[in-house]
């Protein structure tokens, strides 16, 4: 198939100036490239500060990318003005992490879900708007009775469903999910993941699914990308990355997950990762992971490894593979 992917990111870079430190910048995202096909899901994982959320926000132009290209449906949107971008926003929506902060507490659920319709003038009439809001509410498992209520009356899971309804009411093609489940209780996380999977099948959506919980990501993703300090260090089909992680960081990350099974290997046997993240203002030269890598060599300290394909759609940025 030579069809153009729905979303294509090339060398996306996002630097933020550091206040009062001359020309120093925070290297939030440094040269990330990936693509998401129609109806596919890319899971982006990594620890806090690795740049995965920044990456999402640069794609949807909350931040203005420093350099690189974002192509939606083949069209380069990186340098479009906000006005030119407006019609394209219908194709691309976002679900946020914090179900408490991402809904305006002074608006009813009806107004919240209806906001995209009004911003784009998408509803033909008042009736049509109300119809579409109620249908959307039903789809996320809420009822007409909920429409007149305020977000603070809802539980976390219900709020997140309102957030999903708001993102999906315009029938976008791409939904960027920025840690949509990390603020929720365990029993609710699965509800949301199932709901997102159902919507994907029904509407043919593509997701960029960002999370730090590797086990949930596996459930929803076709492919998984692992980020470390603003760079993509490993990228492969989902099953592959869990079965054969190649990058030492991915291996460490997987080993760190506490397995909910007391009979399996307990803590002391697993290696995990040691040390802390270096400063993103002065990232280490060479491979950015070498300060914590158990296998680091002289080469790793000097030369930055490029993301190389090692077969089967599995790409990794490590000198040792």
């Amino acid at each position: 198939m030579s069809e153009t992917p729905l979303l294509q990111i090339e060398n996306l870079t996002q630097h933020f100036p550091v206040r009062g430190r001359g020309h120093k910048v925070v290297h939030a995202v440094d040269g990330v490239s990936f693509a998401i096909g129609r109806g596919r899901t890319l899971g982006l994982v990594g620890e806090s500060g690795c740049g995965k959320s920044t990456c999402a926000r640069s794609i949807i132009r909350i931040y203005e990318p420093t350099s690189g290209h974002v192509r939606l449906d083949g069209q380069d949107i990186t340098r479009l003005s906000q006005k030119q971008l407006l019609p394209l926003r219908r194709k691309m929506q976002m679900i946020f992490q914090d179900p408490y902060a991402s809904l305006n507490g002074r608006m009813t659920v009806r107004a919240l879900i209806g906001e995209p319709l009004r911003a784009h003038g998408a509803a033909e009439s008042r009736r049509d708007e109300e119809d579409r809001i109620l249908r959307m509410l039903e789809k996320v498992g809420l009822t007409r009775e909920h429409a007149g209520r305020y977000p603070h009356e809802f539980s976390g899971g219900q709020r997140q469903r309102v957030g999903i309804a708001r993102a999906l009411i315009l029938r976008p093609e791409l939904v960027i999910c920025d840690e949509p489940i990390s603020a929720l209780d365990v029993s609710i996380q699965a509800q949301i993941v199932n709901m997102l999977r159902d919507f994907q099948q029904e509407l043919g959506l593509s997701y960029l699914f960002i999370a730090h919980d590797l086990s949930m990501v596996r459930y929803i993703s076709d492919e998984v990308g692992v980020m470390y300090m603003g760079q993509l260090v490993e990228h492969s089909p989902a099953e592959d990355i869990y079965a054969h992680p190649l990058h030492p960081y991915t291996q460490g990350l997987l080993a760190s997950i506490p397995v909910p099974d007391p009979s399996l290997a307990r803590l002391q046997d697993e290696e995990g990762l040691s040390g802390d993240l270096p400063s993103p203002i002065d990232p280490p030269p060479g491979c950015r992971f070498h300060t914590r890598c158990p296998h680091a060599t002289g080469c790793c300290r000097e030369e930055a490894p490029a993301l190389r394909n090692v077969g089967g759609g599995h790409a990794v940025a490590c000198h040792l593979v």
């Binding site: 926000r57 949807i60 909350i62 971008l85 407006l86 926003r89 219908r90 691309m92 929506q93 976002m94 946020f96 992490q97 914090d98 902060a101 991402s102 809904l103 305006n104 507490g105 002074r106 608006m107 906001e115 995209p116 911003a119 784009h120 957030g163 708001r166």
Partner: peptide, 28 residues
């Protein structure tokens, strides 16, 4: 900087709308 304002921006709401329906009511 709060997520609900970022959300309004990603939805495509204009400056006037964001100011009048999101920011000022919350600063009220």
């Amino acid at each position: 900087q709060q997520e609900f304002v970022l959300a309004a921006r990603t939805i495509g709401s204009g400056t006037r709308r964001i100011l009048l329906t999101h920011l000022i009511p919350n600063a009220m």
